[in-house]
Amino acid sequence: MAVGPEDVMHVAQLARLGLDEHRLERLVRELSGILAHMEVLAAVDPNEYANLDDGRLGSAPMRPDSGPPLPMAAGPETFAPEMSDGFFLVPRLETHEDGEEGA
């Protein structure tokens, strides 16, 4: 299936990737090219695999409800781009421009 600029723009927005015009055009071509090779899958009849297990037979292992957590050799302040009073800081969310409380 070929994708158009709107499709690529849409997924770029979902993935929070900023794309300029030039890059967009190129990506439309590349992704369409790659997706064309995926077409062969459409020919496979789902009944062929319907009765095969998904290979994930085990059960999720569980840990006891106790610590300690995995230790850290250095705290977030050593790698965080911006922190204050222990909080990570980011530019204020567009939906909270007036700074009201709420998540």
Binding site: F87, F88, V90, G99, E101
Partner: peptide
């Protein structure tokens, strides 16, 4: 999820995980 606090720092959202 963690907690986002929007009214503590001017122009900033503070994140507590």
């Amino acid at each position: 999820a963690g907690k986002s606090i929007h009214d503590r720092y001017p122009g900033r959202t503070a994140v507590d995980l």
